[in-house]
């Protein structure tokens, strides 16, 4: 049996908006990874975590969606802010004087970034190819790029 889905459709929509803002993963992302893919990854990553952590994450998503009024004095939800306002809001969350607010945002930021940068196509484009790393390692080769032995 699969673990229960950690986020409902509304929470997923908030996470998708966040992915598009943070990475930013445009629809024409050169690596073919869109915000929906990032959220899929986050959902799978979070699903087997203990319930208290999953609840904490849902609280973080709710805070992200509803705090614009307190953080940047905009009486609307995060997903309804204009693009420039959203970035201003996220920057304000990141630097918020309340540690709890900063921490909740940090967790969501981390998951979103991991969701994008763990995609094989993305890491390969950056030069890190885990499959090749494992293959070379098993075969006893040094990695290309090592200053001494690898060359």
């Amino acid at each position: 049996m699969d673990a229960p889905a950690p986020f409902g459709p509304r929470e997923r929509a908030v996470l998708e908006r966040l992915a598009a803002d943070l990475v930013p993963v445009a629809r024409d992302d050169p690596h073919g990874v869109g915000p929906g893919d990032v959220v899929e990854w986050v959902v799978r990553w979070v699903a087997p975590l203990p319930p208290d952590i999953r609840w904490g994450l849902r609280a973080a998503v709710a805070a992200l969606q509803w705090l614009p009024v307190l953080v940047i004095d905009e009486p609307t939800r995060y997903t309804r802010l204009a693009a420039g306002e959203r970035m201003r809001y996220l920057a304000a969350l990141e630097a918020h004087p309340l540690y709890l607010v900063r921490s909740l945002f940090k967790v969501l930021r981390s998951f979103t970034l991991m969701g994008y940068y763990s995609r094989p196509r993305v890491t390969r484009a950056l030069g890190f190819d885990p499959d090749r790393v494992a293959e070379r390692s098993r075969a006893g080769h040094f990695l290309p790029g090592l200053p001494e032995g690898g060359r």
Binding site: D21, V23, L113, M114, Y116, Y117, T123, L126, G127, F128
Partner: peptide, 25 residues
């Protein structure tokens, strides 16, 4: 740490963070 974990440690949001990641090497 490789990029998929190291991405967290680099600062900034949006395009600024992405620009840093593109120079992860």
């Amino acid at each position: 740490t490789p990029p998929e974990v190291g991405c967290i440690a680099l600062p900034y949001l949006g395009h600024r963070h992405r620009a840093l990641m593109e120079r992860y090497d």
